[in-house]
Amino acid sequence: MALFEPTILLQLLIAGLLTGSLYALLASGLNLVFGVMRVINIAHAEFMLLGAYLAWVLYVYANVHPLLSLFIVVPAVFGIGWVLERTLIEHVVGRPLLTSLLATYGVSIIMVNAGLLVFASDFKSVPQLQGAIVIGELAISKPRLVAGVLAVILTFAVYLFLEITRLGKAVRAVAEHPHVATICGIDVQRIRMLTFALAVAMAAAAGVMLTMIYSFSPDTGADFIQKCFAIIIIGGMGNFLGAFYGGVLLGVVEAFVGGFGTTQWAEAVAYLLLVLVLLIRPTGLKGMADVK
């Protein structure tokens, strides 16, 4: 079978890695919020779409290239996340996990349907940075390459921020021991606002790059959030780097299932992986033991 030719396998691998890095950027933000606040943000993928739509609007009405609009959209969504955390999410932190689950579910329903009201349900995309880089038999999609590389850079930038800077260390301190952090003089509420804003800004960055790769509509988020859940379960809930590896893994698995099976099976793969992992380890592969 021609499918086993090395170039095709290599193409599948590259496609999977690039898509996977985008998943990773999205999922690590979700996991960061969970780690610090113990809130599962069901609306996380909607912030990705918010980023995508902002980039689309900037492109259509002001002719701004998506790579440039990153510099406008990401800070804007950071601001929105900051305000939303303060006004809404803060009230469900520390409440039962299912309360925050239902609250963010409400946010998601509102965002999706507001999107439908404003942008209607037809699919949008931004035709920029199209085409491929061809190396012999290999063709690598330009927008995917740029998006994949940027996603890796952004994720590691946030990782370094958490590891090295004083503020980042404060975030990790709050994740591990909020009470101790308070005693040490850390403004825990501010850290939570920062975390949430940072996470949704990462999602928005993923969304901006999405505009050049996929067609999206206001309800596209459902596909992505499902994948994110699979990723954070695989990578371990609350584990920032775990989500990164999980994302890349899912991207590759999907590419190969699509290549050797059908794309319809690839759509269900994330869920099957999730169920499998939960069955083997009911708290996730690298799950946090204290999450009841």
Partner: peptide, 11 residues
């Protein structure tokens, strides 16, 4: 057959 308009067709 494919499942969604937003399908990734690369595979």
């Amino acid at each position: 057959e494919y499942g969604k308009a937003s399908t990734d067709f690369s595979s």
